Amino acid sequence: MGKSYTDEQREDIAKQEYKPYKESDPVKIGKEKDIVGYVSQINDKSTGEQSFVIY
């Protein structure tokens, strides 16, 4: 089962999409910079869409 996040943490996670991640980079949130996962894959489509797989 996945971890439950507060509204503030969800907002912080959503803001992460604007950071220039590379594969294996940690994804950190909150004032304490807690690691919620690592980038395992970057999908960069020709349409301009970019998405990240976090594990």
Score class of each variant (00 low, 15 high):
residue 1 M to Q: 10
residue 1 M to S: 14
residue 1 M to C: 09
residue 2 G to R: 14
residue 2 G to D: 14
residue 4 S to T: 12
residue 4 S to C: 12
residue 5 Y to W: 13
residue 5 Y to R: 07
residue 5 Y to P: 06
residue 6 T to C: 02
residue 6 T to G: 01
residue 7 D to G: 09
residue 7 D to V: 11
residue 7 D to K: 10
residue 7 D to W: 04
residue 7 D to E: 13
residue 8 E to R: 00
residue 8 E to T: 01
residue 8 E to P: 00
residue 9 Q to V: 07
residue 9 Q to I: 03
residue 9 Q to K: 05
residue 9 Q to F: 03
residue 10 R to G: 13
residue 10 R to K: 15
residue 10 R to H: 14
residue 11 E to L: 08
residue 11 E to H: 06
residue 12 D to P: 00
residue 12 D to W: 00
residue 12 D to K: 02
residue 12 D to F: 00
residue 13 I to N: 05
residue 13 I to S: 07
residue 13 I to C: 06
residue 13 I to V: 07
residue 14 A to T: 06
residue 14 A to Y: 05
residue 14 A to G: 04
residue 15 K to N: 11
residue 15 K to M: 12
residue 16 Q to M: 13
residue 17 E to F: 05
residue 17 E to P: 00
residue 18 Y to I: 08
residue 18 Y to N: 14
residue 18 Y to M: 09
residue 19 K to D: 10
residue 19 K to G: 09
residue 19 K to W: 06
residue 20 P to Q: 10
residue 20 P to M: 04
residue 21 Y to M: 08
residue 21 Y to E: 07
residue 21 Y to N: 07
residue 21 Y to I: 10
residue 22 K to N: 13
residue 22 K to G: 06
residue 23 E to N: 08
residue 23 E to A: 11
residue 23 E to D: 08
residue 24 S to E: 15
residue 25 D to M: 11
residue 26 P to V: 10
residue 26 P to T: 13
residue 26 P to N: 15
residue 26 P to F: 12
residue 27 V to G: 03
residue 27 V to L: 09
residue 27 V to R: 03
residue 27 V to E: 03
residue 28 K to I: 06
residue 28 K to G: 04
residue 28 K to T: 15
residue 29 I to D: 01
residue 29 I to E: 02
residue 29 I to P: 01
residue 30 G to L: 01
residue 30 G to S: 06
residue 30 G to K: 00
residue 31 K to V: 12
residue 31 K to W: 13
residue 32 E to F: 08
residue 32 E to Y: 12
residue 32 E to N: 14
residue 32 E to S: 12
residue 33 K to S: 08
residue 33 K to L: 10
residue 33 K to N: 14
residue 34 D to H: 03
residue 34 D to K: 11
residue 34 D to L: 08
residue 34 D to Y: 04
residue 35 I to R: 00
residue 35 I to S: 03
residue 36 V to K: 02
residue 36 V to G: 03
residue 36 V to C: 05
residue 37 G to L: 01
residue 37 G to V: 01
residue 37 G to P: 01
residue 37 G to N: 02
residue 37 G to H: 01
residue 38 Y to S: 10
residue 39 V to I: 14
residue 40 S to L: 04
residue 40 S to G: 08
residue 41 Q to G: 05
residue 41 Q to A: 10
residue 41 Q to E: 13
residue 41 Q to H: 12
residue 41 Q to V: 04
residue 42 I to S: 04
residue 42 I to E: 07
residue 42 I to Y: 05
residue 42 I to L: 09
residue 43 N to C: 01
residue 44 D to Y: 09
residue 44 D to P: 01
residue 45 K to N: 10
residue 45 K to Q: 13
residue 46 S to F: 13
residue 46 S to G: 02
residue 46 S to N: 10
residue 46 S to W: 11
residue 47 T to W: 00
residue 47 T to C: 07
residue 47 T to Y: 00
residue 48 G to W: 09
residue 48 G to A: 10
residue 48 G to V: 05
residue 49 E to C: 00
residue 49 E to I: 08
residue 49 E to G: 10
residue 49 E to N: 12
residue 50 Q to I: 15
residue 50 Q to K: 15
residue 50 Q to R: 14
residue 50 Q to A: 02
residue 50 Q to T: 14
residue 51 S to P: 02
residue 51 S to E: 11
residue 52 F to A: 04
residue 52 F to S: 04
residue 53 V to Y: 09
residue 53 V to R: 10
residue 53 V to F: 11
residue 53 V to Q: 08
residue 54 I to V: 15
residue 55 Y to W: 07
residue 55 Y to C: 03
residue 55 Y to A: 10
